[in-house]
Write a protein that binds this DNA or RNA. Structure first.
Lengths: 122, 122
DNA sequence: GCATTATTAACCTAAATGGGTTAATATTGG
DNA sequence: CCAATATTAACCCATTTAGGTTAATAATGC
């Protein structure tokens, strides 16, 4: 659950394509490599980076390595982003709430204190 | 709005710390650099990477450069992740919905068709 | 056992990144 | 104009990454 590893792993289009493929079901390395015209070796390296991020799990059966998608680490990433979106979604929510409130009371009354009001964070 | 640039920018603890600071209000480069014991130069480079990702906006006033946080690009990143979490959050939602439904009707009745039902995606 | 197939390991190279140091530029205050 | 300040630009260096090619390992089918 290392956020760095997760984001580094996601910050590459090839790896995102691999995850996209895996999100529809498990696959072997050769199957994953087929759509790309890069070497099997490169795909293997990408997979290792995805494994380091725990975004991909490996199940070995004989000589075949089946890979599955594990979205859990993305939870942390989304959580981080959501946490830092708060300050503006909160403002949007507050704005929306204010608009609704103004709908009920007189809008003109609010106008004078509108630009000077400074919402303090809880 | 380049997903690569966004994720690359986020995949570094120093840059995330900078964003965290900026999410509480604008700051100049020297202010941002203060908490870290790396050179101003390095901070400047990190900021350039954040600017490339459009996660940070710059407003120049005289010799001072004020930086502000722009969370918009994270929307795309979150969207991508949410899209690939669907296959499992959907299952959780479906499970929850099923539990609520079973609460209303007889749970025993549902039981026979429960394991064979295969929800098709819209 | 042996050839075939699936996958990784071991190297190599080019490019990008993160850090540093030392100019260079631009603006402000006297 | 001049000194001080804020910021970037230009280099240098070590590390990482993405890609390649060519072994090496491991399992299967005969």
């Amino acid at each position: 659950m290392n956020l760095d590893h997760t984001l580094i792993a996601l910050a590459d289009p090839t790896r995102r394509a691999i995850l996209q493929r895996l999100s529809r079901g498990e696959a072997r390395v050769t199957e994953l490599a087929a759509p790309f015209d890069i070497s099997l070796n490169s795909v293997s390296k990408h997979i290792r980076i995805l494994e380091r991020a725990e975004l991909v799990r490996r199940r070995v059966s004989g000589r075949e390595h089946f890979l599955t998608f594990n979205p859990a680490p993305m939870e942390s990433a989304v959580e981080w982003m959501e946490r830092h979106r708060i300050f503006w979604t909160e403002r949007l929510d507050a704005l929306e709430a204010a608009l609704r409130a103004e709908d009920a009371v007189a809008a003109a009354k609010e106008k004078s204190t509108h630009s000077s009001s400074r919402r303090s964070k809880k």
